[in-house]
């Protein structure tokens, strides 16, 4: 029981940045923009979050710095996509390479030094509940935020008029536009919201989960985020399940290190083949080529890709 408890606590705190990043990327992709710069954004926001917190001695400042930077990067992508009509994938890809190198170059003075640390904050009374108290209510504030974000983002996307407008612009910009939705603004809004969450995720890497800064501090996490978003079928709840499963995978990999070296190196790569399988599965279900798929499997694995994901806005939208 104690082993299970400890594992769950580790998984939840280890997955904090991933949850935030996955939700951010989901919002962005719902609006139709693949933020391919996720890898670079998380990396450089991790650095600037750390610098902000280190120079001012307030962790909050670090988180704010990272969010502003993440929002700025995604604003640049959506500006290039919407106003300059450039390929969003090209811009995102180049920004990834740029941000990774920038973070390596600018972060040299901050490698492996100590800065402000977020402490644990047990919620009174609730944390006294046996098992659940220590698993759920004995974390840092950023972890609580990540847990709260899951239902909040679902409500935002599915139950608010802004969420509806964002989803409509991601599915079919032309008809959304003729329904009177300002598609350009919605695309910008969703991309910048997603970007600021990616920034927050970066900062929670360097200020909480993988405390500190070193070269290539968050390598591959951005790509994993892209995979988990698909695994989650563009649904925050399922994406969160994906992120927690990846957290579990990481814990297993650390445990396996003492047994076999190969397994511990390969386990963290598991999300990528899974992502491909899910994508194939989604397409086959949507084309009704496989009959008699049990409903619960569809509910777990299915999902709807936003139809205009990664495409340019049609010319006629002003």
């Amino acid at each position: 029981m104690i082993l299970l408890e400890n594992t769950l606590v580790t998984v939840i705190s280890l997955s904090t940045p991933l949850i935030i990043a996955v939700i951010g990327e989901t919002i962005s992709e719902k609006g139709g923009v693949i933020n391919l710069s996720a890898e670079g954004t998380i990396m450089i926001c991790a650095l600037f979050g750390f610098i902000g917190a280190y120079e001012t001695d307030f962790a909050v400042v670090g988180f704010l710095c990272a969010m502003v930077l993440g929002a700025g990067i995604s604003f640049f992508i959506s500006y290039c996509d919407i106003n300059l009509r450039m390929d969003q994938i090209a811009v995102g890809f180049v920004l990834t390479i740029l941000c990774i190198n920038l973070s390596n170059f600018l972060g040299q003075d901050y490698v492996r030094i100590n800065g402000p640390l977020i402490t644990k904050f047990s919620i009174p009374f609730l944390s006294d509940i046996p098992f659940f108290g220590s698993v759920l209510f004995n974390h840092s504030l950023i972890t609580y935020l990540s847990i709260v974000l899951i239902p909040l983002s679902w409500l935002f996307l599915n139950k608010t008029s802004y969420g509806l407008a964002i989803r409509a612009s991601g599915e079919n910009p032309s008809s959304a536009s003729s329904r009177g939705i300002n598609v350009k603004r919605m695309r910008l809004l969703s991309c910048v919201m997603g970007g600021s969450l990616l920034g927050l995720a970066g900062a929670s890497f360097s200020l909480y989960t993988k405390y500190g800064w070193s070269e290539g501090h968050t390598t591959n996490y951005g790509w994993i985020v892209l995979a988990i978003v698909i695994f989650g079928g563009w649904n925050p709840f399922r994406a969160a399940v994906g992120a927690y499963s990846f957290g579990l995978l990481q814990v297993l990999a650390i445990k396996a290190q003492s047994v076999t070296l190969a397994l511990s190196q390969i386990l963290p790569l598991l999300p990528f083949p899974l992502m491909i399988f899910i994508l194939i599965f989604i397409q086959y279900i949507n084309r009704d080529e496989i009959k008699n798929v049990p409903k619960w499997i569809v509910a777990i694995l299915g999902g709807n890709q936003p139809q205009s994901l990664g495409k340019k806005l049609p010319e006629e939208i002003k």
Binding site: I34, L36, I89, N220, W223, L226, A227, I230, L261, A262, Q265, I266, L269, F272, P273, M275, I276, L279, I280, Q283, Y284, L309, G310
Partner: peptide, 27 residues
């Protein structure tokens, strides 16, 4: 056949390939 966006499949296959290499080198 699967109508999988080539970015996602490509990205996935990149990491599968690096997994294979790591496995071969360690194994």
């Amino acid at each position: 056949k699967g109508k999988v966006h080539e970015i996602f499949s490509g990205l996935g296959l990149d990491f599968v390939a690096s997994g294979i290499v790591i496995y071969l080198i360690i194994g």
